[in-house]
Write a protein that binds this DNA or RNA. Structure first.
Lengths: 232, 232
DNA sequence: AATAAAAAGTGACAAATGCCACTTTTTATT
DNA sequence: AATAAAAAGTGGCATTTGTCACTTTTTATT
């Protein structure tokens, strides 16, 4: 499998990227990013960012779903978050010490833009409003992580799995009908438990008629009941 | 118990606060912060920040230890982090949506500086280097939180309690001899388990001669063994 | 110093979950 | 289409941990 396949050197101006913090950049500033970035395509399963690697790039996910995952004390993988385009991935690592503290892997077909960090950093320093937007975006990340962390430890596994299914439906696919982008083992890594536990709980949901599951296609049938379950 | 006791209206220039991101502010900029901030003292147990409250302040902890804690789904409290002066607390909440998403309570005697958010925000926009430093500090927070989250879910309770004891010794008190600033119940909220589990595991450590515990005074005796334990 | 209140500690038991070993099904490769 | 490899599913058992109900100790208050 080839790792890098540049698509086009510059398409920032028409890019989704323009939406969030970068929306406040003027054309000249955008051009700076353009001239210092590369757009790359990834197949499902491919690694976009490798934990432990040194970096000089800010990565922006323009297309697809990816998992942020970290190898913990004694080699168990844990999924920290599912990222959906269009977002920055790995920003904290780059600003903290230029070493990626977690990996990012494509769950679906993905496209990502690798932006030279020096150019990006200069923009932060020169354009306070841009920096301000970046701070807001980082802040929302932190709050999100805190909530996820509390839910993960306080809810029982059944409740947390229900929550994640609803999260996929409402926030990632905007449909009660979607293709689960995770294997059972990965699902386990996301909720912090074993593959077997995930299988058993999903089976329960299927038996109780709360969801349907054909292959990887999930359909949420009894949404209200699932919401009830997700609250404990 | 009185809640607010202003100490002095302006002492930013001699304040620890000057150290981190604010160290790059010039005197005039510091004065802006000065003129728009209040310094307040807190007794152990007092709430510095209340979850759910609306805010127009950035809070900087100048003295003491405090816990960041969040009430989760169905009213169980969870400690997200122990903050040690000198640090900002609650920055992400203010930038995200002006609503505190977690509480902060004093564990020891604390002092905190409440800085008017508008003045602070203006500084961020005007001084790119200041914004840059703030981004770095937020980034380190995120990375730290990820590591904590992974350790918490992957280690067993015994290992995680060992890790926290070592963390107190190495990073908070810089001594193998310290006064635990948490009740057993709070310790449970920190590791995501029950009071009883904490008591039993600490008892084990005492019986095995790894630590000594007189009242609230903890002494780490067998540090190497504790480190071994903390790795699983 | 006496009393009340809070925190710490204990034992028994049940429930949740991890781990192991194995089978079946699905997917990918030749 | 055949074969290999990966993922999903299953059952049993051991372990961890939470919950409950209670006692003892420590701390705070009058």
């Amino acid at each position: 499998m080839e790792r890098e396949k540049p698509i086009q050197d510059c398409r920032c101006q028409g890019c989704n990227f323009k939406s969030i913090p970068a929306s406040i950049l003027n054309n000249e500033e955008l051009k700076i990013l353009c001239n210092n970035s590369v757009h790359i395509e990834f197949q499902p399963g491919e690694k976009i960012i490798k934990q432990g690697s040194f970096t000089t790039n800010i990565v922006y996910l323009t297309q697809g779903l990816a998992k942020l995952h970290m190898t913990g004390p004694l080699n168990k993988d844990e999924i920290l978050k599912i990222a959906k385009s269009s977002v920055f991935i790995g920003v904290p690592s780059v600003f903290a010490d230029r070493i990626f503290h977690y990996s990012v892997s494509a769950l679906t077909k993905c496209e990502a833009c690798f932006i030279d960090f020096n150019s990006f950093e200069q923009l932060v320093k020169d354009n306070g409003t841009f920096a301000h937007e970046l701070i807001i975006s980082l802040s929302e990340d932190v709050i999100g992580h805190f909530h996820r962390c509390v839910n993960k430890t306080q809810k029982n596994k059944t409740g947390y799995i229900a929550e994640i299914l609803l999260d996929f439906a409402d926030n990632y696919f905007e449909s009660n009908d979607f293709t689960l982008p995770l294997s059972r083992a990965e699902f386990g890594e996301l909720i912090g438990s074993s593959r077997e536990t995930v299988i058993r709980i999903l089976q329960e949901f299927i038996n109780d008629g709360l969801i349907k599951d054909e292959g990887k296609k999930i359909t949420i049938i009894e949404k209200e009941k699932l919401e009830k379950i997700s609250e404990r």
